[in-house]
Amino acid sequence: MPARRNSSDLRRLARRIFPGANPLRRRTDYFELIALLAVVLIAVIAVALAISTAQAELRGRLIEVDREQAGKHQVVATVLAEVDSASTTHRTVAVRWGQPPDEHFAVVNLPPRAPATNTVPVWLDQQGQLTAPPLTRGEATQAAGLAGAGVLIGAVLVTVVGLTGARLWVARRRLAAWAAEWERVGPQWRNHAS
């Protein structure tokens, strides 16, 4: 008995999706089938585009990671003093690195919860100037994931807006068709009711 019920459920689902030769079908009933096929097609294209975008972004970011890591190096600087700062988003400290006569001084910002130690790591470019830390592989992967997710979210939004607009259009067409049909049939029903 369960096999017969499953097959009747499948037939009912197929009749609902594919209007077929139902004598009561309206021309607008084909919209559901076309909309379903369009949504499936858009979903497949969006997933492929998101994967492609994420891979391209990852390749570009990994090249940037390699370039930055080759062009920057880390040194350990000695903290000389903490500089007064009105900011609560970072701590400002004066640091020194290198030995005389090649000694360098700078003021750097540390995270507010950075441990209070005598040394801090700083990043230098090839000219020996302070620079931001190089991009990491984790940050590159995160940027690629965000790019792919952005494509998917954009595709979902466009699909939902398009499908909603199309359904509203079809609903208006159905209502207009029903109103026109009632204008034609209504007077006949009124005559039978009396």
Rank of each mutant, 00 (worst) to 15 (best):
A143G: 06
V122Y: 05
G145M: 01
V95H: 00
G145I: 00
V107N: 07
Q142I: 01
A70G: 02
G98S: 04
T159S: 15
G145E: 01
G162M: 02
G98Y: 07
V79F: 10
G150Q: 03
I63N: 12
L80H: 05
V120H: 01
V93C: 13
G60W: 08
P101W: 08
A140F: 01
T88M: 05
V93T: 07
P111V: 06
G145Q: 05
A149S: 11
D125K: 15
A132H: 12
A147Y: 03
R113W: 13
V79E: 02
A140T: 05
W123V: 07
V160F: 09
T159R: 07
R59F: 12
A70W: 03
V107A: 12
A149P: 01
A94R: 08
V83H: 05
D102M: 10
A106E: 03
R61I: 05
R113V: 13
V122K: 11
G162H: 00
E64L: 15
G128I: 04
N118I: 08
I153L: 14
E139P: 07
V83P: 08
D84T: 06
G128S: 10
Q127D: 08
A143C: 04
T136A: 08
P134Y: 06
V161C: 02
V161P: 01
Q142S: 15
P133C: 14
W169G: 08
Q99T: 09
V79Y: 09
A147M: 00
A140W: 04
V158Y: 03
L130F: 15
G148A: 00
R167Q: 12
L130Y: 09
A171I: 01
V95A: 06
A155K: 04
V65D: 01
V122W: 11
V156K: 06
G150E: 00
T131F: 15
V107H: 04
P121D: 10
P121C: 10
L157C: 13
V75I: 09
K72P: 05
P111A: 15
